[in-house]
Design a binder for these strands. Structure first.
Length: 488
RNA sequence: GGCGCGUUCGUCUAGGGGUCUAGGACGCUGGCCUCUCACGCCGGUAACACGGGUUCGAAUCCCGUACGCGCUACCA
């Protein structure tokens, strides 16, 4: 029989979700769900000095936005609750006691000053900085007397002297470590909280975690964990260490260069589907050359043996491209619902059909809702006065077109396609009468109505503006030209 | 310094001894389309870190070197 696949995402509550954490959580989700297993969220808040208020709620909130769900978590509970380490202290205490009784852990009374000094000396002698095991040889009776006397202490693991610990990583294969290079890690801190090493082993076992899928930065401490499993007599889970997400300079991705918080991408207008899709492809590749996947499809396609070993640079430009693709695939309704809240009320007050037409007309190439709303606002803006170095023919052209448009039956303004055709013929007729053609016609009208030389197709713009808005722009341009002429 | 991991176009990657004069995507870039910009379409640019092996044959296997990164806390 096969045991149930259970994975976990175990962040410390530092206040925001790192995109690397997202990738880790996503792979855990994909792996678990792809095997009919479960993913759980466990909060590793054993460092009291780094607690951030509201961090857990924030995680839940952002994962909810992403559409990643946890089968067990502090929020929904589960058979192995609580899912917050600070609420599981008695477990770690019991575990430490057990290790101490078996001689696998010992109390250490060294002050942090002494530790610092030892470390400094070792580094000065360019030797590896490791605990010198000063307290390991203390007699049990001595130690217990000092503990009873209330002397501050930590508990360290007694790492075997000359052994080789081998781990069989699902992504990297066999990796081995000599115990001589492994430090006597602190398991229990003097404040009574466990370190990550102890807590994650105790909890992963207690929560029946079958696969530990985490970042590569954990690979060097994995032998410590393996040793702990052995001390406890527990079967260790399978390990899979994911390649790191990198800055453009190939260092571990950090705040230093660009955004690392998922929240930042959300605020920037990146769609959750796009972010998930993009991040999934950082370190993993499907069997074929497809690159667009829904979460569902990812669950189906994902496998650990197609995860790469080398770190991946988080390419902002490609993310932007992918988001643009996702925006392009949105339904008219979805994109309207995304953009409308970002538009000024003055626009929404108007007949929405024209604003919707603007959204539809302007969406090709839009990178996000915010980008598109900006384009809409810009399209509706009225040109300010300036330039107008037109000759008489251009002036007359603008007047002619205004007259022609004014004469259009009202219904025409509600039929955008027909309107474009009418506008084009009006412009061409006027152009022919005034001796203008091609750009002479169009750039003149464009400058008259928008005040800029670049922008959306004119025929569409007048549809967005409607009869009144269009005629106002045309008449306004003529008036401005005439007034500047009289001034001159 | 020690330990560990890694190394295919600028970036994400395909590739698992011959089908590779190394494929796709982003970026960059040339052209087309066009009232302009954008979009779209067509094309181009650019990589197997290096050195030894093994083999008839290596991007693919082995060893070494270099370089990069990670870890080296009473942080995770």
């Amino acid at each position: 029989m096969t045991t149930e696949i259970r994975t976990r995402y175990a962040p410390s509550p530092t206040g925001y979700l790192h995109v690397g954490g997202l990738r880790t959580a996503l792979y855990n989700y994909l792996f678990a769900h792809g095997h009919g297993g479960k993913l759980l969220l466990r909060v590793e808040d054993t460092d009291r000095t780094r607690l951030v208020e509201g961090a857990v709620e924030n995680f839940l909130d952002i994962f909810n936005w992403l559409g990643i769900t946890f089968d067990e978590s502090p929020k929904v509970g589960g058979p192995h609750a609580p899912y917050v380490q600070s609420e599981r202290l008695s477990l770690y205490v019991a575990a430490t006691k057990r290790l101490a009784e078996d001689g696998h852990a010992y109390p250490c009374f060294c002050s942090s000053e002494r530790l610092d000094q030892v470390r400094a000396e070792q580094q000065a002698a360019s030797k590896p900085p490791m605990y010198d095991r000063h307290c390991r040889e203390l007699s049990k009776s001595d130690s217990f007397a000092r503990i009873a006397a209330g002397e501050p202490h930590v508990w360290r693991m007694a790492v075997p002297v000359n052994e080789v610990v081998e781990i069989d990583d699902l992504i990297r294969g066999k990796v081995s470590f000599e115990t001589a290079t492994i430090d006597d890690q602190v398991l229990m801190k003097s404040d009574g909280f466990p370190t990550y090493h102890l807590a994650n082993v105790v909890d992963d076992h207690d929560m029946r975690i079958s696969h530990v899928i985490r970042g590569e930065e954990w690979l060097p401490s994995t032998p410590k964990h393996v040793l702990l499993y052995r001390f406890f007599g527990w079967e260790p889970p399978r390990f899979a260490h994911l390649p790191l997400l990198l800055n453009p300079d190939r260092s571990k991705m950090s705040k230093r260069s660009g955004d690392v918080a998922v929240e930042a991408y959300r605020d920037k207008g990146i769609l959750p589907e796009a972010l998930l899709n993009f991040v999934a492809l950082l370190g993993w590749h499907p069997q074929d050359e497809r690159e667009f996947f829904t979460l569902r499809e990812l669950v189906k396609e994902f496998s650990l043996d197609r995860v790469n070993k080398a770190g991946a640079v988080f390419d902002q430009a490609k993310l932007k491209w992918m988001n643009t693709e996702y925006v392009a695939r949105l339904s008219s309704e979805d994109i309207w619902n995304g953009v409308a809240p970002l538009l000024p009320e003055s626009l929404l007050d108007e007949a929405n059909s024209r604003v919707r037409y603007a959204v539809e007309s302007l969406r090709p190439g839009a990178e996000s809702y915010a980008d598109l709303s900006g384009k809409v606002v810009e399209a509706f803006s009225v040109p300010d006065d300036k330039l107008d170095a037109w000759d008489d023919a251009q002036l007359a052209l603008v007047g002619d077109v205004a007259d022609a448009l004014a004469a259009l039956p009202a219904a025409q303004w509600n039929d955008f396609e027909a309107l474009i055709a009418s506008f084009k013929s009006a412009a061409n007729v006027a152009g022919a009468n005034r001796g203008l053609k091609g750009k002479g016609i169009w750039m003149t009208l464009r400058m008259a109505m928008t005040g800029r030389e670049h922008g959306p197709e004119l025929g569409r713009l007048i549809g967005m503006w409607g009869r009144e808005g269009t005629l106002n722009r045309l008449h306004g341009a003529v008036a401005k030209r005439l007034s500047s002429e009289s001034r001159a």
